[in-house]
């Protein structure tokens, strides 16, 4: 009886998301049939999607635009991860570093990534470096704060265990403190990926030869709403894909956290 109830529940849980997506699709179709000029329908968007391959925008086909955006995000993020997590460990572990950087971080952290765009463009122009740097500066503070918060979570008794079993400072840090903080660090990485992705698209919208953000702008300026939607759907799909990949990676890196 209980089992049967469970299996019914499982089926419902599988069907509900499908219904939710269907609702969006139906809403889209309804809205686009009612206002064809404001909103292109799925068929039109699909045709526009095909045309991005036969008739490349700015001489770059869609995967090229996706790669242009992804590359910027990845380069910016890799630097932000290395420096941000490193600094976060220092801030969380070392009181002196915390005293120096703590208040600065509290001040810089609430600045939304997009707010850095005008400053960075003023400093470095609108080239490739600026876009990478915007991703970097837009994500690093969150990474530092998440990492240091995770480090501070470490139970004092676990550090005592490290001391009793003869660990030196470095061993206690790498074997006990950092692994304890790993789930928090991972939460920071996930946030950094989604906010990095948002930021790069915004930065590209202000001017770029290639990239999904530039597709949005080109579609907007050319009154090509179908192209805007192709870009927006690609942004959503890549964002979702990154998030799925990250949760898979988290299961590999922090297996104890899934129990």
């Amino acid at each position: 009886m209980e089992k049967k109830k469970n299996s019914v529940m499982n089926i419902v849980c599988i069907i509900l998301p499908v219904i939710a997506v269907l609702c969006i699709a139906i809403g889209w179709i309804a809205f686009s049939t009612a206002n064809p000029r404001l909103m292109p329908g799925p068929v039109e968007v699909f045709q526009r999607f095909i045309r991005t391959f036969t008739n490349p925008v700015a001489r770059v086909i869609l995967p090229g635009h996706i790669w242009a955006s992804l590359r910027r995000v990845l380069i910016g993020l890799i630097f932000a991860w290395i420096i941000g997590i490193g600094l976060g460990v220092l801030v969380g572990w070392n009181k002196k570093v915390r005293a120096v950087l703590g208040s600065v971080l509290e001040l810089l952290r609430p600045i939304p990534p997009i707010a850095w765009i005008p400053l960075v463009i003023m400093w470095f122009g609108i080239g490739e470096f600026s876009k990478v740097f915007i991703v970097f500066i837009g994500t690093i503070f969150g990474l530092i704060v998440n990492t240091s918060a995770g480090i501070k979570l470490v139970d004092k008794i676990n550090i005592d265990v490290g001391k009793i079993f003869g660990g030196n400072q470095r061993q206690i840090l790498t074997e006990i403190v950092v692994p304890t903080a790993l789930p928090s660090i991972f939460a920071g990485i996930r946030t950094s990926v989604s906010s990095g992705w948002t930021t790069v698209v915004a930065a590209e919208m202000l001017g770029a030869k290639a990239g999904l953000g530039s597709l949005v702008t080109k579609g907007w300026q050319g009154n090509d709403m179908a192209l805007v939607l192709v870009a927006v759907i690609s942004i959503a799909a890549i964002g979702a894909l990154l998030s799925v990949l990250l949760s898979k990676l988290e299961k590999v890196v922090c297996p104890w956290n899934q129990i």
Binding site: I157, V161, G162, E175, C254, W256, N257
Partner: peptide, 28 residues
């Protein structure tokens, strides 16, 4: 190093397997 301890709140590392926990002092 000749005085070891079993802790009140068990204080085993949740992120290490049983074997890795037991090997902690040896690894250090």
């Amino acid at each position: 190093p000749e005085i070891s301890m079993v802790f009140q709140k068990t204080a085993v590392m949740p992120f290490k397997t049983v074997q890795q926990n037991v090997e902690l002092g040896l690894k250090f």
